[in-house]
Amino acid sequence: GETKIIYHLDGQETPYLVKLPLPAERVTLADFKGVLQRPSYKFFFKSMDDDFGVVKEEISDDNAKLPCFNGRVVSWLVSA
């Protein structure tokens, strides 16, 4: 499998796309960081919350699996 991750960088209009050679349910924050090489950023991901619906959730645990929608991951990188 392959996972497409779209990421928005510090408010830039056009998002970036990276592809990881892993199925979406196995991709972790560490996998994503390894491709990006951007150490001083906070990582937020499109996520579903039972109370609020669609939210941007910050993930900082490198072992955390990334939230996935239709085989895609959507993220926002914010300068720390």
Rank of each mutant, 00 (worst) to 15 (best):
G1R: 10
G1V: 09
G1D: 10
G1T: 10
E2V: 11
E2L: 08
E2I: 11
E2P: 06
T3P: 06
T3K: 04
T3Y: 01
I5L: 03
I5Y: 00
I5G: 04
I5F: 01
I6Q: 09
I6G: 04
Y7Q: 00
Y7W: 01
Y7M: 07
Y7R: 01
H8S: 04
H8V: 06
H8E: 00
H8G: 03
L9H: 00
L9K: 05
L9A: 06
D10H: 05
G11M: 04
Q12R: 12
Q12S: 15
Q12Y: 12
E13F: 06
T14Y: 00
T14C: 11
P15E: 14
Y16V: 11
Y16L: 13
Y16I: 15
Y16E: 10
Y16G: 06
L17A: 11
L17G: 07
L17W: 13
L17P: 01
V18G: 05
V18K: 05
V18D: 03
K19Q: 09
L20N: 03
L20G: 04
L20F: 08
P21M: 07
P21W: 03
L22I: 14
L22K: 12
L22S: 01
P23L: 03
P23A: 08
P23E: 08
A24D: 06
A24G: 10
A24F: 06
A24V: 07
A24S: 12
E25W: 07
E25N: 12
R26N: 12
V27E: 04
T28H: 07
T28D: 08
T28G: 05
L29V: 03
L29P: 02
A30K: 13
A30H: 03
D31E: 10
D31Y: 03
F32V: 01
K33G: 03
G34W: 04
G34M: 13
L36T: 01
L36I: 10
L36M: 07
R38I: 10
R38T: 14
R38F: 10
R38A: 13
R38Q: 12
P39L: 06
P39Q: 14
P39R: 12
S40V: 14
Y41N: 02
Y41G: 06
Y41H: 09
K42E: 04
F43R: 01
F43L: 03
F43P: 00
F43W: 05
F44C: 03
F44V: 02
F44G: 02
F45C: 05
F45R: 03
K46W: 09
S47F: 13
M48S: 15
D49L: 05
D49T: 14
D49I: 09
D50K: 14
D50V: 10
D50Q: 12
D51A: 13
F52G: 15
F52N: 15
F52H: 15
F52A: 15
F52P: 07
F52D: 15
G53E: 14
V54H: 12
V54R: 05
V54A: 13
V55A: 10
V55K: 14
V55D: 09
V55E: 11
K56N: 03
K56Y: 15
K56A: 09
K56T: 14
E57N: 09
E57A: 11
E57I: 15
E57Q: 15
E57C: 11
E57G: 04
E58G: 02
E58C: 03
E58N: 06
E58M: 07
E58F: 06
I59C: 05
I59L: 04
S60P: 00
S60T: 12
S60L: 06
D61E: 09
D61C: 07
D61W: 03
D61M: 08
D62G: 01
N63R: 09
N63Y: 08
N63S: 11
A64L: 01
A64S: 08
P67I: 00
C68W: 02
C68S: 13
C68I: 12
F69K: 10
F69P: 00
N70V: 05
N70L: 02
N70F: 07
G71C: 00
G71I: 09
G71D: 07
V73C: 08
V73F: 03
S75D: 03
S75G: 09
W76P: 04
L77Q: 00
L77R: 01
S79P: 14
S79G: 09
A80R: 10
A80I: 12
A80D: 15
A80Q: 12
